[in-house]
Amino acid sequence: MSRFLLRRLLGAAVILMIISAVTFFLFFAVPRDPARFACGKICPPETLELVRHNMGIDEPVFLQYWHWLIGIFAGRDFTYGRCDAPCLGYSFVNQQPIFDAIVDRFPTTLSLTIGAAVVFLLFGIGMGMIAAARQGRPADKIASSASLIGASMQIYFVGVLATWVLVDQLQLFERPAYHELTADPVKWFSGLLIPWLVLSIIFTANYTRMTRSSMVEQLSEDYVRTARAKGMPSRTVFLRFAWRGAMGPIITIFGVDLGALLGGAIITEQTFVLHGIGELSIKAVVNQDLPMLLGVVLVAATAIVLFNIVVDAAYAFIDPRVRLS
């Protein structure tokens, strides 16, 4: 297990290096001048030069990347002040170290994605199980059609509609907003409820279908028949045998889906004006704020890579035929 972790963490470090380098050089492949952008409309050449220097973009690209990389571990000094390790650079647009900006926004995005994941895992898997248990009967048909409709939903459209109907018209729900969990758990919950539901709709639909088909497949497996042949009650057969086998593929897909979930979170944050990482990344693109973009990409990639290590470990835990080595 510890060897597995060590190997995977090393692999993760390599992947993250590659991702950051690619992002870095891609950004420079596109002709643009962040300094001019930062400098403003009327910008004398001397000032532009100064801005360039302050931003650190008067150096060769490779050197820039090197400084950036070192900064993560050792911190950096800018003309604006010291940026402590882990330093992901300094946003001249936000006038803030990148890391601080991300730490500020992180709880919002984390709350949004974890909450949505809980919702879609609970409902998706639950409905899929019910559909599988009631194959061909009304409950199955309802779940299957609902998941077809759900899978074709658009976050922005559903989000605006849900806010208008549930908040403005019926006044059943709180207006979507982020409140800190530690400050007021109830407000945190009620403010995120609509974003959670909206972000999770498509996933719920997909997980319903996936769980159903995975369960149906497992239920026709020989070992499930054996479980019934030895007198296990149908509930046990369903949960302890068939579900045990159906879980594997679902967990794998869940690992893959984290990227899509973060993508969905960006749109959801835009829809409900939540100030999370998604909003940060869109602003970074609009403002040509390379350090910010890099920081966001790196944090998202780290989350995905680490999460996939956890998923693989979980898979090995579920299926004894898979060995971690």
Partner: peptide, 15 residues
């Protein structure tokens, strides 16, 4: 009443 099946690999639970 007990039953044993043809393919013991697929008939036993791998989990």
């Amino acid at each position: 009443v007990a039953m044993i099946f043809q393919d013991p690999l697929t008939s036993l639970s791998p989990y």
